[in-house]
Design a protein around this nucleic acid. Structure first.
Lengths: 331, 331
DNA sequence: CTGAAAGCGCTTACAG
DNA sequence: CTGAAAGCGCTTACAG
C-alpha cells in the first residue's frame, strides 16, 4: 500500500507538501513541485487513506442516508427513485454515501458517530423523535417528509394538505358525495395525517361528510378491500395515500368482479410510473421526486460548508394529474 | 467525544482491557471487569471510532455496493429490490454499506482502497473488465449477473439462456411463427446476449427463424415501437429482455390503437410487481430476487471470514409465469 | 487475565 | 513556499 510517505520520499519533499498538493492548496505549493508530486501520485496509483484522514481531520466525507424501515422500502418506486437520486447527488459532490436502516431512533446516533459522518438525510417518519435526534447528533441533518412541532429543523417536504384538498375537490366536482380514505398508520405518519386533513376539510367545507368508519389504514385492515365493498353506507370515491395502495386496490376490486371507475373511483398519490401503466390509468397527485432529492442535497451541503446557516423548511407544490380512474356522476 | 481512554480511566483499567471487552474477547477478561466496563460504556454512551479502528486494524467493516450506472438505476424495480435486499443483509451482518456509482472500472479501485473496504458486491455489467477489477482489488468480490470468460470469479446469476428458451417455447407452443427480440445494448450485456441466444436457438431448433432485423435494442432505436409495427415481414411475438421494456411496449402499442395480445403477444423478464398490474397482465420469466441477494451476501461474508475459500459461480433457476399477454394462434 | 509500547497514515498548528 | 513535531483513537504484538 503506497502512502503519503512513499510519495514524499520519491518526490524529495516532506509529507506536508504532498498533503497540500492532494488537498488542492495549490496556492501554497510551487507549481513545479505540484506537477512533480502529481505525476508521482498518478504513476504510483496513490489513493489517500480515508480512515487516517477522518481520524485526524475529525470529519469523514461521508453522508449517511438514514432510512426508517428495512430493505423492503426499496420496493416502493417513490422511495427508491428518491434514494437513487440523493445518492447520485452525494457522489457528485465528492462525498461517500452510507446507508443505514433504523427502527429505533437511538440507533441513529451510534451509526452517525462511529464514522464521524458529516451530514445525514433522513427518509421516513421520525416525527416524534426529531428533537432528540437533533440533540444527539450535532451535525447537519436534513429530514424528508417529516412533520414536527419543532420549528428549528431542516425539512424538505411537499404540500400534503393541498394534495388532500385537490383529491377531494376533484371527486366533488365529478359529482361524488360519499368518500373513503386509505392510508398507512395514522399514528406514525404526519404525511398521512395532513393528506387526510386536507381531504376531510374540503369535504366538510362542501357540506358533505367523511365518516370515521370510512377512514382505513392498510396496516390494521388485512381485508381492506372487502371492508370497503361492504360498507354499510356505500361509497363511490376512494383517496389512497400512495399509488402503491391505489394500484393494489384497483387490482383487488377488479378481481372481485367490480369495475374501476364505474363502481369505485380512485385517486392515488406520488405519480410513480406504474400509475400510468395500470388499467385504468390512475388519477393521482404528483410530486417532483427529483427536485425534492436535489433540494435536500443542496441544503445539506450548504449546511456542511457553513454550520451557521439557519435551518429551513421547504414545501414543494403538488398537482393533480387527471387520468382515467375517476368517473363523472351525473345526477 | 468520549474515547477508549476515558472509559479506561473511569474503570481503572488500561485501554487494552476496554478494547478487549468491546471486541468481545470475553475469555480474556474477567467477568467482573467486563461487567464494570460495559456499564461505564453504556453510561457514557461510548461509540468506538471506526476510522481509528480501520486505520490500525487495516479493515473497515464496510461493504461497498458498486453500481455500473447512475442513480436512475433505482427506477427499475428489479434493480432497487435487489439493492434494498442486499443492503439489508449487509447491515444484519453488522457491516456498513457504502454505495458507489461507477462508469469506468478504474473508479472502483479508488473507491474501494480509500476506505479499505472489506468486500464488494458489483451490480450491473462489468463483463469485459472483470479480470482487471479482480487484479486491482484483492478483496472478496461478488458479481451479480456478470458474464466473463474468466473462470475464477464469484458470480451469482440466473439461467438467462433458459429464460430465452422458455420464452421461445411458449410462443411456439401457442402457435407463433414470427418473432422479435428487444433488449438493451448487446455490446454491453452478457445477460442480454444469453437471453437472446436461448431464444434464438430454440426458434431455430423448431425449424423457424429469428431474422436479424427483428433483433432490436432500445438504446439504438428511439422509434422502437413504430419499427416493430412496420416490419416488412410482420411478426406476432415479442420477447423483451425486461418487464420495464415489455410494459413500455404494451403501452406504446396500445396507444397506436393496436391490441395486446390480439395483435402482438409479449413476454417480459424479471416478474416485477408492475408486470402483474399492467393490462393485460404480463406473461414473464420470473427470477427470485431476494434469494439472489441473500446468496450473494452469504457468499461475500463467507469469503471475508475465510480468504482461502474458492471462487464459485451460482446459477439460479428461472420459470415462465403465464398470464395474459400471449394469445394462442390456431391455424 | 492485564498492560506498556509502538504504530496505522493522515492533518493541525506552528515555525521559518 | 516548505517542513518537523505532535496527535487523532484505536489495534497488534509482545511481555508478564
Amino acid at each position: 500500500m503506497v502512502t503519503l510517505k512513499d510519495i514524499a520520499k520519491e518526490a524529495g519533499v516532506s509529507i506536508m507538501t504532498v498533503s497540500r498538493v492532494i488537498n488542492g492548496n495549490k496556492s501554497k505549493v510551487s507549481e513545479e513541485t505540484t506537477k512533480r508530486v502529481l505525476a508521482i501520485i498518478k504513476k504510483r496509483g496513490y489513493v489517500p487513506n480515508s480512515s487516517a484522514r477522518s481520524l485526524s481531520a475529525k470529519h469523514s466525507q461521508i453522508i449517511s442516508i438514514i432510512i426508517h424501515g428495512n430493505g423492503n422500502c426499496f420496493r416502493d418506486a417513490y422511495f427508491s427513485t428518491m434514494f437513487g437520486s440523493i445518492a447520485q447527488y452525494v457522489q457528485s459532490h465528492d462525498y461517500y454515501t452510507m446507508i443505514n436502516f433504523v427502527n429505533d431512533y437511538r440507533d441513529i446516533t451510534k451509526r452517525l458517530h462511529t464514522w464521524k459522518v458529516d451530514g445525514a438525510i433522513l427518509l421516513g417518519t421520525f416525527d416524534k423523535d426529531i428533537l432528540q435526534i437533533k440533540e444527539d447528533n450535532q451535525i447537519p441533518l436534513v429530514f424528508i417528509d417529516s412533520y414536527s412541532p419543532i420549528r428549528q429543523i431542516t425539512n424538505v417536504g411537499i404540500d400534503d394538505y393541498k394534495g388532500g384538498v385537490l383529491a377531494a375537490k376533484h371527486f366533488i366536482e365529478r359529482g361524488h358525495r360519499s368518500f373513503a380514505f386509505v392510508g398507512t398508520s395514522l399514528d406514525f405518519s404526519g404525511v398521512t395525517k395532513h393528506r387526510l386533513q386536507g381531504f376531510k376539510d374540503t369535504i366538510i367545507n362542501a357540506g358533505l361528510t367523511l365518516k370515521p368508519e370510512h377512514i382505513l389504514t392498510i396496516d390494521e385492515n388485512p381485508n381492506l378491500t372487502k371492508k370497503i365493498v361492504h360498507f354499510k353506507e356505500p361509497i363511490t370515491a376512494i383517496f389512497a395515500t400512495s399509488d402503491i395502495i391505489a394500484i393494489n386496490l384497483i387490482n383487488e376490486i377488479t378481481n372481485m368482479g367490480l369495475r374501476i371507475p364505474e363502481d369505485y373511483s380512485i385517486i392515488g398519490f406520488d405519480n410513480v410510473p406504474s400509475s400510468y401503466y395500470v388499467t385504468p390509468k390512475l388519477t393521482t397527485i404528483s410530486q417532483d421526486i427529483n427536485r425534492k432529492a436535489q433540494i435536500a442535497s443542496d441544503i445539506l451541503f450548504r449546511h456542511i460548508s457553513d454550520h451557521t446557516v439557519q435551518s429551513e423548511s421547504i414545501v414543494l407544490d403538488v398537482q393533480l394529474i387527471e387520468r382515467d380512474s375517476v368517473r363523472t356522476i351525473i345526477r
